[in-house]
Amino acid sequence: MTIQESVLRYGDSPWQRVDLYVPAEGPARSAAVIFHGGFWRHDRIARDLEPLAVALVRRGCATAVVEYRPAWDGGLWPAAAEDARTALGRLDAGGAPWQDATIVGHSAGAHLALSAVAGQGAGRRVVLLAPVVELAYAAAAEVGGKAVGHFLAGHLAAGGTAEEATPRPSQADLASLTVFEAACDQAVPAELTEHQLSGWRERGLVTDHHVVPDARHMHLVNPERDGCAPVLTLLAGAPVSAEGSVS
């Protein structure tokens, strides 16, 4: 299978772009828009998710990987969340296959994925992988070290709170909410995941929760690892096609 690669730019910063991967032959069977993690400071970048995108396209799932500004280069809250919303809006405006895509967020990218869909009332399918969303809890637990404090620095200095920067999607925003937890996650503690899940359930958001045995934090987005298999199956729902090239 040949994979067609292109870039959608949605702002002036080099970070404000979406890397698009689609099957060259015929329409995709499904689509995913992915927000990478990296604690809003880009310990990981969109480029790092290219193997995942290629694996998804080979299974018939068109994939968009959203890049956005890191906290140290223009992305302090709320700018990175605004980037996420703008990027998703631009993709949706382009029509098929993106307007029906599943929205995926890995790690801190889950915070941006939910920020992008919250308040839109668009009924999106959302899949969160090892999510870091509840910022007050994450800051107190020092998830990502001082990352939350750095991300919210300007907001907190102006008297804002971490609560205000935590997305609160409604039932109208979500068609479904699925959470994958890595059983051996070294970056996101199980207590944070449980705290987030109970909060979403209390608010009536139907939540599927899967614990991936033996998986570490990055395994969920690394198609070379067994821990990524259930994610690939959920997003693409199809076996891999023949090996191919990227164009």
Partner: peptide, 25 residues
């Protein structure tokens, strides 16, 4: 100092990825 502390960990095992991040830094 706060800005410098907010810089990312760089994955130097992938020189293309490292280039993208460090050139912006």
């Amino acid at each position: 100092v706060s800005l410098m502390e907010s810089l990312p960990a760089v994955n130097w095992d992938d020189i293309e990825s490292a280039a993208e991040v460090t050139e912006r830094i």
